[in-house]
């Protein structure tokens, strides 16, 4: 089917479906294509008539809808709520303590590094400061 005919068919189907135009009005828009457009358009409208929209039974819609709803809720409880809950369970004071502990851990690591790599002047200075006891400062 060439593009002109295809586009004319699409346009006519839309216009007739939206009740903006009747079949003859639409065919009048395309006098050059009328001969090939008319039988295709009549065939399209015949198919449109034999495929009406039907509704699933209310019983099915309700019962399966409820089942689906329960499944979604179940999955939400399993995957979404625990993540949120675990985030909420840590109080701010515990979080602050954990940060302090982590920082101390970093200091301790630096201190151990200083003991091992004593050749680095910068680190030695830091390590000596940490080793000096109050009242017994080195000269």
């Amino acid at each position: 089917m060439d593009n002109k005919l295809e586009n004319a068919l699409e346009n006519c189907i839309t216009l007739i479906r939206n009740r903006e135009e009747g079949i003859d009005d639409c065919l009048a828009r395309y006098p050059n294509l009328r001969k090939s457009l008319e039988p295709l358009l009549r065939a399209a409208l015949a198919v449109d008539e034999v495929l009406p929209e039907i509704s699933p039974s209310m019983e099915f819609k309700k019962s399966f809808g409820a089942k689906l709803d329960a499944m979604v809720e179940d999955k939400r409880k399993k995957f979404v709520l625990p993540r949120k809950a675990s985030r909420k369970r840590i109080p701010p004071c515990v979080s602050a303590a954990a940060t302090k502990c982590f920082n101390n851990g970093v200091c301790n690591c630096l201190y151990l590094c200083c003991l091992r790599c004593g050749n680095d002047g910068c680190i030695r200075q830091q390590s000596s400061r940490q080793l000096t006891l109050p009242g017994k400062e080195s000269s």
């Binding site: 929209e53 039907i54 509704s55 699933p56 819609k61 809808g65 979604v72 809720e73 939400r76 979404v80």
Partner: peptide, 21 residues
Amino acid sequence: KNYDSKAFGLLYEQFVSKVYN
């Protein structure tokens, strides 16, 4: 996608007839 049952329910309501047809 975040398992919001209300949202999924609305999607179901909206498209169940199309899929069924």
